[in-house]
Design a protein around this nucleic acid. Structure first.
Lengths: 304, 304
DNA sequence: GTAATGTCTTTTATCGGGAAAAAACATTTT
DNA sequence: AAAATGTTTTTTCCCGATAAAAGACATTAC
């Protein structure tokens, strides 16, 4: 077994959802762009759809025969890429109790535990290292630096530098820039969410990411844009295992965003600076308050 | 052939240089720390040294029998790690003419050309991606973003933000901090270099890196410290293939550093800010002026 | 003749294996 | 008994091989 066919399975599932409305499917290249996969994969999907009686396929003719049933879908867990599986597994360990700073990370052990090859684990760790939570000892193991208070402070320091600068660049963008349309759309979505916050508070984090990414992109600096990956990753996993006060937190944040958006639309740099600072300050507070006390120091276990 | 023994060969060569003075070698663990390798490797080194008649080895007794001769050394090219070989090879292509933005990077082709396995190339590309010069298309090839004017500007923008902040943190460090001693040492080395600049101008880049890293460390922020890797990498390779005006450039930079050091020692934030800005501005100019005109835009060849 | 489909080739993602290097354990020496 | 040496085990690094997926080329349909 060398490579799982999760790309095919995931695309197949997404294609099933495309099915029920339209009575006939588009051309193979079109489906490919739609699903974000190659034509090779599209043809595998169509082949299976024909086999299972979902469509009738004859060259350009792809007629939908029936609506998809639950059993037509591949199980969700088979659609994840190996990288996602490893990441989740690793983050679970990292944020679990007992993940002390200074701890060694063993590639082989990780690979065995997750049930994957060492190559995939190695590649994951290399990719993950840019988040600043682990460090490699040459020709030897990785060292966990730990999700500590220090980490959170260093992360937010950079975030604040970058976002203040991006926000300042944002207001300097010309009137006809596409960002203003995007900003209007985000404002509408924020208002909708605010009005139904009780029921939909858990939808905030996705909106949060889109909003901040829009601002960061205004910097036109790849290092600033890329750094948001670090922030997004941390927030994503951190809040996934820390739901305390989530509703209250998100309600406050939505209001702060709306004030921030209003400031951006005013195009007054001073107002933007103030609104941005206010929001980032409370975001930092939220992150810091959720770091368990026992994780602050972490004596550095320095192996020979 | 699965893994080259370059760690052993490199450590062996370094150990040879340790030999000629002392008439007897220290214990195995001590040698290990000295050379930065495990005892296993130390023992391989000692074994060969005994074989080739360099030492007499009997348990704790490691008597040097003769001074090392040129032919005792392993060839330099056999002491490089695979990662270094791939990096050099890749950077040569990248900075060579014809490396247009948008160009595809083929793992297999690279591996074949360099004569290594695909795994090593993949790992290199993943590690390299944080420099912002390449980007991965999921399940597909990498795309070269190119060493363009835009890249240089984005890089220097971050560098300036980070260094100004680090320099400000530097002067706030307590009087008894070890950094002041380090700074004094660097000042002496700068003065020595300045006085012999005609003969030693090519030694500047190493000094430059140590100086800026010292300042960046004052930020106590891992993201700032790590970012210097990007800067160092770019400067290292860029100047390696661009020696124009090198002497003149370095002479100016040494003087700027001395002014910068004086400002730091004055502990006056305003003076530091001014000296830092001045130096970074000329560093940026140097970098920008050395980017060939033809490399500025680079139409994005966007594959399906 | 453009755009689709059909077929073949190349590349990427991933595994298992094996040598180099590190690390752990056992034994000796001072 | 602390620290060295001797020995064994484990882990890292790297390759070649293989299925999945992408991409290229050839052929057909409109």
């Amino acid at each position: 077994m060398s490579k799982s066919n999760n790309v095919y399975k995931d695309a197949f599932n997404r294609c099933l959802r495309l099915l029920d409305e339209n009575k006939s499917l588009p051309s193979e290249p079109e489906l490919g762009t739609l699903l974000g996969v190659s034509r090779t994969t599209v043809r595998s999907i169509l082949a299976r759809m024909e086999e299972t009686g979902l469509i009738d396929w004859n060259k350009r003719n792809k007629t939908v025969l029936r609506a998809p049933r639950p059993e037509d879908f591949f199980p969700e867990e088979e659609t994840d890429s190996l990288a996602e599986i490893i990441e989740r597994s690793f983050m679970r360990r990292l944020l679990a109790e007992g993940a002390e700073a200074g701890m060694q990370i063993n590639e082989l052990e990780l690979a065995r535990e997750i049930g994957v090859g060492t190559t995939s684990v190695r590649e994951f760790l290399i990719r993950f290292s840019r988040f600043g939570l682990i460090e490699k000892r040459r020709n030897s193991h990785w060292v966990l630096k730990g999700f500590t208070r220090a980490f959170a402070l260093e992360l937010t320091e950079i975030r604040e530098m970058f976002e203040l600068r991006s926000a300042a660049a944002f207001v300097a963008l010309p009137e006809d820039s596409a960002v203003w349309v995007d900003l209007d759309m985000l404002e509408v979505q924020h208002r909708q969410l605010a009005s139904e916050i009780a029921a939909r508070f858990n939808e905030f984090s996705e909106l949060d990411e889109r909003f901040h990414r829009l601002i960061h992109r205004a910097s036109h600096n790849r290092f600033i844009v890329d750094f948001y990956d670090v922030i997004a990753m941390i927030f994503h996993y951190h809040y996934q295992w820390n739901k305390a006060e989530e509703r209250q937190r998100n309600e406050v944040a939505v209001q702060e965003h709306l004030a921030y958006i209003a400031a951006l639309k005013s195009r007054d740099p001073a107002k933007v600076d103030a609104a941005c600072r206010k929001h980032l300050k409370s975001a930092r507070q939220t992150l810091l308050s959720s770091i368990p006390e026992g994780r602050q120091a972490g004596r550095q276990v320095q192996p020979a």
